[in-house]
Design a protein around this nucleic acid. Structure first.
Lengths: 261, 261
DNA sequence: TATCAAGGGTAACCTATGTAAATGCGCTGT
DNA sequence: ACAGCGCATTTACATAGGTTACCCTTGATA
């Protein structure tokens, strides 16, 4: 872990938020300031270990990370993926609830917003508060989908469904092409995500390849989904749970989104 | 669904919150007011159907409900249980994310807090805002545990683990004895929660009975866990994810819970 | 009293997925 | 060039859990 100064002019968070909220110039600046200090982690390093009673928020600038939990028998369950542009960690919970950890899957750069600053930022900038709210709601939607995936789908559907979700999420931050992206996951990671064994992930991946659903180059780790519609159909994938349609106006009432049906 | 006037003097929400937050007298009163209007639902009725773009919050006064999702092939996955004292629905998401539904499992009484009132209440009453924050964090911890349960445990462990979680959550609101409670769930509901078939739930339940882990009277629907420690051990249950230890002071800084290690 | 539906229980059989073990390939370090 | 490691791949075999089908009890309704 080292200190850097991040100075990208086209900020990924500004870009992401702007797609659904009209940010004021001042809010732009706040975000730019927040992302000045960055921390780098190497592949395999823990960013947060068992929650550490740390309720700071983190902005993931680049790289992939996972939130995971270890079970008594030593197994690992991956709870969720953190991709560029994601906010995480802001438990805001004063209590020690879940004790999960966050680990870098690739080299990663994050910006930390100390817990004591969060309340202040939210109070003074409606739209940034909205951003947190939205991030939480989105995270919950993703967790919900993961539960459905684990509870009600077979291996083939689980894998295809996950690959589609990742494609879709990466596209939202311009990290994926029309149907392909860089997938830095070993089969072991996939297994720990989907509640399967490594061997069965391998089998299922082969089947997806044989069915001409995907192409995966083990060298470059580039994944291509050959027929998004067919795979969506086959795995029951419905991308609407990630959609974020309308740009709401900036007035608080409308922001709650109650009036208009 | 009918309108009633709820007028319990010992309010379940006051009781629940008081156990970990020092409420002001004024806050007591706000809660009492919020819980004046109540709505009743019968077993099987939908309380929220596919999110309905409704971001109101609901307080569950009495009864059991489930949050669930239907998959394309007609199957149902139950995402979470809502028990007396729980807050739900406050998506606060202006976007249509997850489209899950909430349904009453028993006759249920809820109090509704319209979306347009939530912001106002949170602004003027720090501790009530805290209550929402806490409810969200808790819900996420429960979802996380559910993911681990589905991904990394076998049928026996899943069932035992769930029964322990319910015991624990009910105890927190005085709805369970030391080791027994009223369990209004059919085997079908259990199956849809745990990603199992009905038949296998039946088999597994029998096994738990044979192992003298539980007693379940199908007439009264009373469940007794005969040896909580043994069952916890056998199913990898660790109740800490639900614990809510210290009463934080009421000042905002402390509320974030950052300073004290 | 007869009927019906919902839920629990059980048995026979089938299959998706797990486990164990061995092979190969492509890195990295020496 | 070689050893060694991480990861993907494949085969053979074992088993947890799914499917189908049927019966029983109970309680509601006619």
């Amino acid at each position: 872990m080292s200190e850097n100064s991040g100075s990208t002019s086209t900020n990924i968070f500004v870009a992401k938020l702007s797609s659904y909220i009209d940010l004021s110039i001042e809010e732009h600046q706040v975000i730019e300031e927040l992302t000045q200090n960055s921390m780098a982690f190497d592949e395999g390093q823990d960013i947060i270990f068992e929650s550490e009673k740390n309720s700071s928020a983190y902005l993931l600038q680049s790289g992939w990370a996972i939130r995971y939990k270890i079970v008594p028998d030593g197994g690992r369950q991956i709870i969720s993926y953190l991709l560029p542009g994601d906010i995480f960690g802001f438990r805001e919970s004063l209590f020690e609830l879940s004790d999960d950890s966050v680990q870098a899957l690739t080299p990663v750069i994050v910006h930390c917003i100390p817990a004591e600053n969060i309340a202040e930022i939210c109070d003074s900038h409606t739209n940034l508060s909205l951003a947190f709210t939205w991030a939480r709601a989105r995270e919950q939607a993703i967790l919900t989908e993961h539960i459905v995936r684990l509870g009600r789908r077979n291996a083939y559907e689980r894998l295809g469904h996950l690959l589609l979700e990742l494609l879709h999420r990466l596209q939202l931050v311009e990290k994926a092409g029309n149907s392909d992206y860089f997938l830095p996951l070993t089969q072991e990671v996939l297994a720990d995500t989907l509640g399967l064994s490594i061997v069965h992930v391998n089998r299922t991946l082969r089947k997806l390849r044989n069915d001409l659903m995907i192409e995966l180059d083990p060298k470059t780790r580039r994944l291509r989904i050959l027929d998004v519609d067919a795979l969506s159909e086959a795995t029951g994938y419905d991308q609407s749970f990630l959609d974020q349609n309308e740009k709401p106006s900036r007035s608080p009432q409308d922001a709650i989104g109650f009036e208009e049906k």
